[in-house]
Design a protein around this nucleic acid. Sequence first.
RNA 1: GGAGCGUUGGUCAAGGGGUUAAGACACCUCCCUUUCACGGAGGAAUCACGGGUUCGAUUCCCGUACGCUCUACCA
Length: 507
Amino acid sequence: MTDGTNDKKVRVRFAPSPTGGLHLGGVRTVLFNYLFAKQHGGDFVVRIEDTDQTRFVAGAEDYIFETLKWCGLTPDESPLHGGPFAPYRQSERKPMYKEFADKLVKEGKAYYAFDTAEELDAKRKEISNFQYGHAIRGAMKNSLTLSAAETEGLLAAGTPYVIRILLPENEEVKFTDLIRGEVVFNTSQVDDKVLLKADGMPTYHLAVVVDDYKMEITHAFRGEEWLPSAPVHVLLWKYLFGLENMPQWAHLPLILKPDGNGKLSKRDGDRLGFPTFALDWIDPKTNEITTGFRERGFLPEAFINMLAALGWNDGSGQEVFSLDEMVDKFSIERVHKGGAKFDYEKAKWYNQEWIKKLPVSTYQAQVKEILAEKGIVANDDNLEQVLNLVKERCVFLNDFVEQARFFFKPSETPDIASIQPKWDEKKNMFFIELIRAYELSTVWEAADLEVEFKELSAANQLKPGELMLPFRIMLVGGKFGPGVFEIAAILGRDETLSRIRHVLSLL
RNA sequence: GGAGCGUUGGUCAAGGGGUUAAGACACCUCCCUUUCACGGAGGAAUCACGGGUUCGAUUCCCGUACGCUCUACCA
């Protein structure tokens, strides 16, 4: 199969570090993993890569799971959901890694290095293009340059050390990337990466290989920033578990900032006024709040749809996809190689499309809550009707506040300024008569109300056009919203008449 | 600096040796709407540049330019 699946059960993983809020790129990585797994009837596992204790941030892990939940991307296995390959936190798997690092040392594929951070810094300053590799390692303090006895001595004395992979000189490492095709690196160009840190924790390089093996991962999709270190991972697979067991790789393109160049960062969002995180993130140290797409009023359907479209399309021209449709139509080979600039306008368009597309019942409760926060009590009898009437003018869920509030609460500041200049006694009389007519109406439906309105305006020798705006201002408070007669129909007789009277009294 | 990856309208992109080079977003004009939206019609590209290969290249090859990523005991 061209997408790299074979008879093995497909298993993918998303492996985030709990260092803060999940940004767009991270969620898209999850999405593509998820889509691929589900399309092949496989498993989606979430593994927490918390090997760097200095960067650990409290709450970040919970945040990741809340994000997945909101997006509807449920893991089959994770620290939260459990699973047969537990534990799913690398910090809890610490003992597993050292064994493999030791094995590599024993086989001459890796070595102990005793250089201190200061010594490394000094070398980096001294030698331009410093790379801890074949050209330099002979001049450093490690088990390759030290005698066996010296190394033993340092180890026995408890001297801090790291284990580095010993890269062969001038050897080609090839692998097939599902998105990019064959990728080739020469080992002389990559350095002897640290595998095991002085604190006994593995680096990403060792951990990702060991865990992918132990968790029987078949496909590994990650951001493009990992491409340069891929040869180290391939070599580790070759040394430890065999290339035939190595997962298929796919390196996803980056999401770029809308203006200028470079990958999108949280700072760009702050600067340009759009979210980059899925949900609100509160920095536990500074208490600084970063707004998320959810709180900004995005629907999860729109959020993931927009994310998928950033780098993938099915070639048909279709742009709006549900999660199920994406599972059905996704193809890793149709993912772009080049990065895409993030376009917030397009993101908003997706949201509006989804607000229109989805039955309002799917977000009605949430809108009701948003309204309540603004002190607007919506009654369930006609909320659905109201939302249906105004949904096509909402880009964000929060827009329902402005678009729907007048149904539940008369405007406190009706825009009488825009009707006053042309206001006269004739119009005043018309509305007084309208009140009377509407009081006597036997039915209260939009079409009938419109007929009565027009008949009355004709009887008064007024153009309905001159009266529509005042009527709208009376009911709505401003120059916006659905058809006035539909509004009146929903408001009901009492409320409609009361609003006409009220504005009349102000004119 | 080195290595890797990339480059189709302002943005996302389809396409792929011979086409009027799809579509969407944004923008502008018009229509619809006696409001605002929705909707509809119209408007923009010497396919980064230079060489090849070819009857023919945006599409294949090689360079160049530009951009990005990596170059940590971070992921």
